[in-house]
Amino acid sequence: MAKNAMLIDVSRCIACRACQVSCKQWNRLPAVKSSFAGSYENPSGLSSATWRHVRFRETVEKGEVKWRFLSFGCMHCKDASCVFVCPVPGALTRRDDGTVYLDEQKCTGCKYCISACPFDVPHYDDAKGKVYKCNLCADRTANGLTTACAKTCPSEAIRFGDRDSLIKDAKSGGKKIYGENELGGLSVMYVLQEFPSFYGLPERPAMPVTTAFWKKVLKPLGYIGVGTTVAAIILHYIAIGPKKYKGGE
């Protein structure tokens, strides 16, 4: 089956943030009451009500200012840690078309996925008691439409389409792709102008050790009981530490 994907070429991004708004509009996500946070970034990051967020990175190199932008959301990994750790059948699945789908109806709000994600994508909603993230506009793509963010992007920085074609296109233009092979291949890929860490992306994204352990050892044993999950969380805490927000300036 052809794989859906988005390729985000940051050299075309003008940080208009139309992707951030169109995501909210299509997915009927509420605005968050925000206040001036010291930059053009507002709200300051992803949340249960913000599934796409544009990061602004400002620096000075050899006396010249650089201002770079990154439209960021769920990366839809092939080796998706969130899917591996999710204990509820069907709540988080990787679909054949490449979408990592979070089913709101089935999510119990256990938050394992939040701990496991190498990109800090899923977020918990206190009021609803569930976790939320980008579903790659599965309800649109299933009907032959592009994702809302790609549809809205005025400078064609975000393109949606067949993964192989997007990769071929970018490579024919001599561009290096972030996410082609990482974590088995991401469904959301970037063409970057700086090192990944400049934008707050992991240089070499990897499944957390604990998740790998979970995948290889614990999960095949079946859902043995609460003890295992607690063990996994403790292991994760020891191995990775508490969650840290990598963004911000």
Partner: peptide
């Protein structure tokens, strides 16, 4: 700014746009 429109009479009545640029700076 990209996030607001002219005197803001339309855009400052839209929560999604106020969220992006809430205050004068």
């Amino acid at each position: 700014l990209a996030e607001h429109y002219l005197s803001g009479s339309a855009s400052r009545n839209l929560p999604w746009l106020c969220e992006l640029m809430p205050e004068l700076f």
